[in-house]
Design a protein around this nucleic acid. Structure first.
Lengths: 207, 207
DNA sequence: ACATTAAGTGAACAACTGTACACAAGACTT
DNA sequence: AAGTCTTGTGTACAGTTGTTCACTTAATGT
């Protein structure tokens, strides 16, 4: 009945994934979302879900993959726009905040997943963060900043940077997106956090 | 029927709260826990729940209060045992890790709540962290460490310290509690994070 | 000593959940 | 042109959920 199957392939799949993100964006926690709820939000019959995902956790895993793409886009933009080293931190934080606001639902999913129910999702997000940190370390190495640090100390520093920024996510996401003033506060504070860390790294002595 | 009401007052209430924590400890996310599930775990009839809590979120709020007590106990122990300033970080991290392992469920609840479903719980945990950070700042002020920092810069530093430690929670809690080796790794890494931050604070110039 | 309250119980119900099954029709392969 | 695969649909069902209600009994206050 109705119009069946004149959609482009993968459309329902996308609809289901964005539906899940939408629910998360509305304040629901991913762990408490059910199959019927997602399909309802997506405007699809519950059975359709199984055509694309084994379970909600499975959908979560595929969301992590897409999250990886979002993070890579952000990284690329940062690399293109951050030119002078002296404004490096400020600009990077700015780009991060902008992306966090633009992809609010995605980053909410990320923040939730760090202590979420599914071990696999948890590990996936953690792994994305590690990747991000190692890329950051490569960039800093290439730019010859912090040249006195050993590789492992540089890795440690970048790990700490990434964690600090990730924690700021929970700040940003708990603010109403229109509250520019609060957002600005978080931006400044995060910048100072990173400055503090990099000053520490500058004076760190790799034994 | 059965033996009714020869328990001491508040016993069922406690049973319900520990039941919720137990479920969290078993890997469930707090946001996905229902009333019936809690009462089942507590060995109590579903209706009893309403005698003590309005909803699961309400129970969560009361858990946050108890979490505050746990954190204060930890703080006290740290204050009593950390004597020489040079081992301050190492010992503090050690005490933290020990408490995280001893009160695993509580700290899991805390980690979950930071990006949880209930706004109130979220704000509660955040507020506990702020309190902790400000107490830490007071201690550092009293000990005359970092005397060159302005009050607000010291606050910022302590905030960063607390966040870093809190993030380590997700590391610790994702490790099997018997895996001493991995725990030791997290302990060492967290210690280095804090050392890096404090070195940064040592060279920070409050404008 | 008696009335009130606090804290427990069991039965009931409508709403919702995940999942299985049989079916339809466009898309792809040969 | 015919057959297979993929994707979407509707129906069905047993199990679970939150919540209400009427009840019992120990504890408490006067």
């Amino acid at each position: 009945m109705a119009d069946v199957q004149r959609r482009r392939p993968g459309e329902t799949r996308e609809k289901l994934m964005t539906a899940a993100l939408t629910l998360v964006g509305k304040g629901r926690h991913f762990a408490s979302i059910g199959i019927r709820e997602v399909t309802r939000q997506a405007g699809v019959v519950p059975t359709s879900f199984y055509r694309h995902f084994r379970s909600v956790d499975d959908l979560g895993l595929q969301l992590v993959d897409e999250l990886g793409l979002v993070l890579r886009r952000m990284m690329r933009e940062a690399r293109e726009n951050v030119l002078q080293a002296d404004k490096l931190i400020e600009e990077s934080v700015g780009i991060f905040v902008a992306h966090a606001l633009a992809n609010r639902n995605f980053f909410m999913f990320m923040a939730q997943g760090l202590a979420g129910e599914s071990r696999a999702v948890q590990e996936g997000i953690r792994s994305e963060m590690r990747f991000f940190a190692s890329e950051l370390a490569n960039d800093l190495r290439r730019l010859k900043l912090l040249p006195h640090l050993s590789d492992s100390d540089l890795d440690m520093t970048c790990e700490l940077v990434v964690r600090t920024v990730a924690f700021s996510l929970t700040d940003i996401l708990s603010i109403s997106p229109e509250d520019d003033y609060q957002i600005e506060l978080v931006r400044k504070r995060t910048t100072r956090f990173l400055q503090l860390i990099l000053i520490g790294a500058g004076h760190w002595e790799s034994s």
